[in-house]
Structure formats: C-alpha cells, structure tokens
Design a protein around this nucleic acid. Structure first.
Lengths: 214, 214
DNA sequence: CTAGCATTCAAACGCCCGTTTGAACGCCAC
DNA sequence: GTGGCGTTCAAACGGGCGTTTGAATGCTAG
C-alpha cells in the first residue's frame, strides 16, 4: 500500500482504519491486521497496550478535529448572535461532510463509524460519549433556543436521528452512493443540501404526542 | 423463562431470538445460548446443522408474517384511496411494533433485524433483500405518490436518512439510551413515536434548491 | 567502542469458539 | 422382551483469538 515507509505505529493506525471500514471492528483480528500492515503481531500491544486502545486511537485521531471544528463554527455563530436553525445545522453537519470527503481517509473513517454503532460496542460508546458529549450538549442548547417548543428529550432524540442519518449517508451504506458521473465535491454539496433540508423539516416537526400519560 | 416445557428445537429458537436481539448475532455463542435455553450444546447442530442455519431459521420464522402484514396494510390504504403520509409510515412501522409486542417471543425481534442489517452480514442481507425487497419498493412508490413535489432522488436520500436514524436509534448507540426507570416497551414506544414524528417532518420538508444547475 | 534503550521478533500461553463423536437414553412397534 | 430410532449427553477436536514473554536487533549518546 501507500504507507510502507511510515513508522510502525502509523502503519498500524492507517491499516486498522482501512480494515475496520471494510469489515467492522469485531471481524478484524490482530493477526490479519498486523500481517496486512507488514508489522509484527506484538507491535499492537507494544504501541497501544491492547486492541481496545487501538480502536480508541483510531477514533480520536479523526473525531478530535471534527468536534473542534463543530464547536468553533458554533461559537462563531453564537458570538455573532441570533443564528438560524439552518446555520446551526450546517455548523454541525458540514465539518462531518468535510471529513467524509477528506482524501486522507475520511470517507473510510465514516464507514468505521457506521460499523461501530452497528456493533453496539459498549466500551467504545462510553468512550465517545465521555470524550465528545460536551459538543452535543452545546448544540442542543443552541438549537433548543431556536426551537423553544421542543422538550429537551425530543431535541436529543432528533439530534441523535440526525447524527445517525449523517453517518449512514456519509458511509454510503444505503442507496445513495455517489453516482459515477459526479465528483466527490458535487456529492458532498448535494448530501449537505439534502441532509440539512431534511433535518430542518425533522427538527421543526411538531413533537410527538406524549405516550398515554395515565 | 416461559418455554421450559417447549421441545428442544423451539426452546433453541426462542432463546436465540431473545439473545440475538439483546446482543447481536456475533456475540452470541452456542455455549451461552444452549446454557440459557437449558439444552445440550450439541442440540443446535443436531436440529439445525450449524449456527448459520439457525440464524436463517430465526429470521424467516418472523419476517414472513411481518412483511405480509405490512403489505396488507399498505394495500388496504391504497385500495381505500388517498393515504396520508402518516398512514403510510404507520403501515410500515405498526406491524413491526405489533410483532415487537407479541408475547410469543417476538418482542425483541425488530432489534435482530437492525443488527443483521448493520452487521453487514452479506449472506443474510442478500437473503433479506431478495425475499422482501418488493415490499420496500411498494412503500417507496406509495410515499412518492403522496409527496409529488419531491424528485425521486430527494425521496431516496430521505428514506436513506430515515434508515440511518432508525439503525442508529435501534442500536442505542447515541445519547438516547433507554433510561434506567423505563421498561423496554416504554422505550420502544417512545423511540417509535419520536422517529415517526421526525420522519414525517423530514420527508415533508421543502426539497433543497438544486445545487447550481449550470 | 560500547552501554543503554526503544523497538521488533518468533514463539508460546490460556481461553473460547463451532463442530463432531460415540455412547446413553426414552419410547414405541412388534 | 427386544430391536430400532429419534434425541440428548459429556467429552473432545482443531483452530483462531488477544496477549505475554524473553531474546535479538538497531540506534544513539557518552
């Protein structure tokens, strides 16, 4: 591959990302990973301590920057004052789409993400919630201010739905794979427009009637 | 559990369904399954031939009825004429909820589905697509007829978004995990209500302006 | 030149997996 | 009774897993 010259640690990371994207976290074994990376089996435990910590490293390598960008975009909007729903959503969605388009493996990483939540990896879930929960919280507060009739619970549900839709669509799991004739930039622009339009409709929808309060 | 008196084969099936739903296909081992079912380890291979064939059996047992009901509900709406978006979504979701609440062991079955899809179990995926694809197609047509101002492309994008949101929510990967005080039934009912309300808003949202038609 | 240290390596450890085996069991027809 | 048969059972098989180990290696500072 392209990383034959990279130091062992980096070689493991990029190979792990590629394989996780292709097969999911569970199915990738350290033996196959290290073989494909061209490093010794024990190198993973030497450099990362365990397979779990390698997984954490793969995620934080991409997500740290993504969430910083989201937060920066949000703070910029708030500093300016009176952000619209569309602007807030764009601040949430666009950094992710940028990452998905990043030729340095962002698209691959989105598939890793999609696999991860499909696999119900509790440890990873907790790790991510603890590490990036504050970003989601800030967005909930800001969007809640724009949509005062929604309860906090409904708001969290809907942002969760949007996050799911975002990862799913960006991983190109579903029907909406990029068409052969379209450039990646066109695809991203279209995905962003489609997702934001959809998300605005979903967010602004009337809340569900409370389930039979007795 | 309630199936102590059932014959071995049925005991395996219902235990498998319950455990698959709780943990996903990969994490359930035959040793734990047979222990929980109170049968011998070898019974699975005796009655089903292999773990894979057990999985197929679990699926086809429940899915035939589910998709028949969905299709029947849809056809009933179409025969009556002019179904609303909410009715169409309900026709898709309610049979699943009925099945989910069926005390005959199907209460957790829908989670099995979400898992199987997300785990990218290719064999199972193909099996499902080939066996029930026509049902999804009929729903796409019907929903498209209710939302005529949406292009086919926008409609597919949005159904993809909903699928992503659904898988995400069902995997309980996001923030909206079941709260300790709530029963599984309450959580499911709430998730469903939240998702349908959100999906209606998103589906009915004005389509995005076409991206710079040159 | 060499002592020290980070890194790489082959090999092994202990564990759990799905599956197979062959004996034991329970039941009904004859 | 007894033979046959569907079923259950404990035990073992072969293999893959993540991890650990201790020796070999290569680089760098003194």
């Amino acid at each position: 591959m392209s990383d034959l010259a990279l130091p062992t640690r980096e070689r493991i990371l990029s190979t792990a990302e590629r394989m996780f994207a292709r097969e999911g976290l569970d199915r990738v074994t350290l033996r196959r990973l290290t073989a494909e990376a061209g490093v010794n089996l024990a190198a993973v435990n030497y450099h990362f301590g365990s397979k779990d910590r390698l997984v954490h490293e793969v995620f934080s390598r991409r997500l740290d920057r993504l969430n910083e960008e989201r937060l920066a975009a949000l703070e910029a909007l708030l500093a300016r004052g009176r952000p619209t729903l569309r602007e807030l959503l764009a601040a949430f969605v666009d950094p992710a789409l940028d990452l998905a388009l990043d030729p340095g493996g962002g698209q691959v990483f989105m598939r890793v993400l999609a696999h991860a939540y499909a696999e119900r990896n509790e440890g990873l879930r907790d790790f991510l919630a603890q590490r990036y929960g504050h970003v989601l919280k800030r967005f909930v507060e800001a969007i809640g201010a724009v949509l005062p009739r929604l309860t906090r619970e409904t708001l969290y549900w809907r942002l969760d739905f949007i996050a799911g839709a975002l990862v799913y669509a960006m991983a190109e799991f579903g029907v909406m794979r990029r068409r052969p004739g379209r450039s990646a930039e066109e695809h991203r622009a279209r995905a962003s427009a489609q997702l934001v339009a959809f998300a605005i409709g979903g967010l602004a929808a009337p809340p569900p009637s409370p389930p039979h309060p007795e």
